[in-house]
Write a protein that binds this DNA or RNA. Structure first.
Length: 507
RNA sequence: GGCCCCGUCGUCUAGCGGCCUAGGACGCCGCCCUCUCAAGGCGGAAGCGGCGGUUCGAACCCGCUCGGGGCUACCA
């Protein structure tokens, strides 16, 4: 609960800042090219689960557009469904947004802090005849919807309470029935708006039935809260998933009924699909941002990848920083077709970003993973190993694993099954190990002196055939970080120990 | 069922009536480099869902068809 109250307080503060932000004069910091313009976008997820990649992509688009226009990026938590919303999810959303490097300019606002305002708007809608009380119970609605479906008709609300008399309403109330508030949809005509990515979107009102805007417990439903908050918060651009495109007609209707003049610009983005084109789900593997974070993905890589899902530019280079993306990003380049999530491409992109990091930065990123795996690690040794691993890994976890032979306790060191087989299959393996041991006992402990290739010729062995065995003995795998550097980092004693262990194991 | 949307290599995409014998990227295959593995370099296979129009000319415009998706909640 501590978490919850701190979130609420934070949201409240931000809210005040938001309303008092308009000072008499806008101050432009020296060196800045211009004032923040009036573009206001918001990322407004429902805190009902983990941060899905689709949600994250929506956040990225909004953030990039805010930065592109010099506008304001607002975070609003749509927790109108109190039964499904959790404080943990609210925290996770913020933590993921922060991890991805997206600075929130305003918020987080919690819709649950604004229920009074939503109820006020609902009262206004009731007063001007755009909403009415509905006393139908959920069970009744379900039964009637089934019946309509069976009759081959659209299963929406049948308007039973639309025009009942005050006397009937009183009767329902004295029956102890609780009322929801429904929005009154126009009888005929069409709803129409211009979508920045879809163009003209229109639908007949007759296909939309009166919908609930206020629950019996007084909490608002999405449509109401969404309309009111976008209005109150001065949102100018709504960038979100295409799954919400049909709800736009309802939100816009509420807006108008509330007396709003100009609607915001809506931009509905294609959904992110799983492999095969089906909806992306847990069946397809990791679908939450947290999972990628924990698997050793760099935030800048995830952001980069997500930016190019459903958005594209002609330029060949796809590896970009957040700043470059913000410069290039624009709504006109958002695609129409759904985009399948490609974990392989994300992995490749992560590798690219890993390679762009300085060794110091990469080491800092790998350190927490290495510590979880091996306890305390020597930062200097780690940095040297990371430098060797940088071009050999696509995730931070892989790097930590490749460095494992340096940090794992000696009694925990083991050789992979297939690598031991490789060693066994190596010609003159005994002589080779003996020669390497002899060499390592006395040679200078430098990378140059540890170049084992000179030892191979007398045994008539090729590096390509023979060295993997030594890789196995030293690193526990026949593939790994460059051998001579690795031996140098491991140190003479441990190298000799591992080599003689291997020799002994040969029997 | 109804309403709405979408359709370029396996995947992400460029294309916006002639610049397209369709470009780039991931993945895949081959070669080079090389102490393993990678990284890197070079090369290759692979696509306009289909059918009709319109036009001198269509990936781009129109119609139909097929396929995919979304919505149709007191979820968002």
């Amino acid at each position: 609960m501590t978490q919850g109250s701190s979130t609420t307080r934070k949201a409240g503060e931000a809210q005040e800042r938001g309303t008092s932000e308009m000072g008499p004069q806008a101050v432009i910091a020296p060196g800045e090219t211009g004032a923040r313009n009036s573009t206001r976008v918001r990322f407004s997820p429902a805190p009902t689960g983990f941060m899905h990649l689709g949600n994250a992509r929506t956040a990225v688009f909004n953030y990039l557009y805010a930065r592109h226009t010099g506008g304001t990026f607002v975070l609003r938590i749509e927790d109108t469904d109190v039964t499904r919303s959790t404080d943990e999810a609210t925290q996770q959303i913020q933590s993921v947004v922060r991890w991805l490097g997206m600075d929130v300019d305003e918020g987080p606002y919690l819709q649950s802090d604004r229920f009074d305002r939503h109820r006020e708007a609902a009262a206004q809608l009731m007063a001007n005849g755009n909403a009415y009380e509905c006393f139908c119970t959920k069970d009744e609605l379900e039964v009637r919807a089934e019946a309509m479906k069976a009759a081959g008709k659209a299963p929406g609300y049948d308007g039973a309470c639309r025009d009942i008399s005050e006397a009937q309403r009183d009767a329902f109330r004295s029956d102890g029935r609780a009322a929801t508030l429904r929005f009154r949809i126009p009888e005929d005509g069409r709803s129409q708006f211009t979508d920045a990515v879809r163009g003209e979107v229109s639908v007949a009102w007759s296909t939309i039935s009166d919908f609930v805007i206020l629950r019996p417990d007084g909490s608002p439903v999405f449509y109401l809260a969404n309309a009111v908050d976008d209005l109150d918060m001065g949102i100018t651009h709504v960038i979100r998933g295409e799954d919400l495109i049909d709800s736009t007609h309802r939100v816009l209707a509420i807006r108008r009924a509330l007396g709003a003049e100009e609607p915001p610009t809506y931009a509905h983005c294609p959904l992110i699909l799983g492999p095969g084109g089906a909806k992306l789900s847990k069946r397809h593997g990791a679908v939450s941002v947290e999972e990628y974070r924990d698997a050793g993905y760099l935030p800048q890589a995830v952001l980069n990848y997500l930016a190019f899902l459903g958005w594209g530019i002609a330029d060949g280079n796809e590896i970009m920083t957040a700043d470059e993306l913000a410069t290039r990003f624009d709504i006109v380049n958002i695609n129409h077709a759904g985009a399948a999530f490609d974990a392989q491409k994300l992995e490749w992109m992560n590798g690219e970003h890993i390679r762009q990091l300085s060794v110091a930065d990469l080491t800092a990123a790998v350190l927490p993973f290495a510590q979880v795996m091996y306890g305390q690690v020597d930062a200097t040794i780690l940095a040297e190993a990371v430098a060797l691993a940088q071009s050999r890994a696509t995730t931070l976890v892989q790097i930590a694993e490749q460095c494992g032979f340096l940090f794992a306790d000696d009694d925990a060191f083991s050789i992979r099954e297939e690598s031991w087989e490789k060693l066994l299959g190596t010609e003159h393996i005994r002589e080779l190990l003996v020669a390497v041991i002899d060499h390592c006992r006395t040679c200078d402990w430098t990378v140059e002196a540890l170049d084992l290739r000179a030892l191979l010729e007398p045994l008539e062995l090729k590096p390509r055939k023979a060295l993997p065995a030594i890789y196995s003995a030293i690193e526990g795998a026949h593939t790994g970080l460059p051998l001579f550097e690795s031996m140098h980092l491991l140190g003479r004693d441990r190298v000799l120990q591992r080599l003689s262990d291997a020799l002994a194991r040969l029997g």
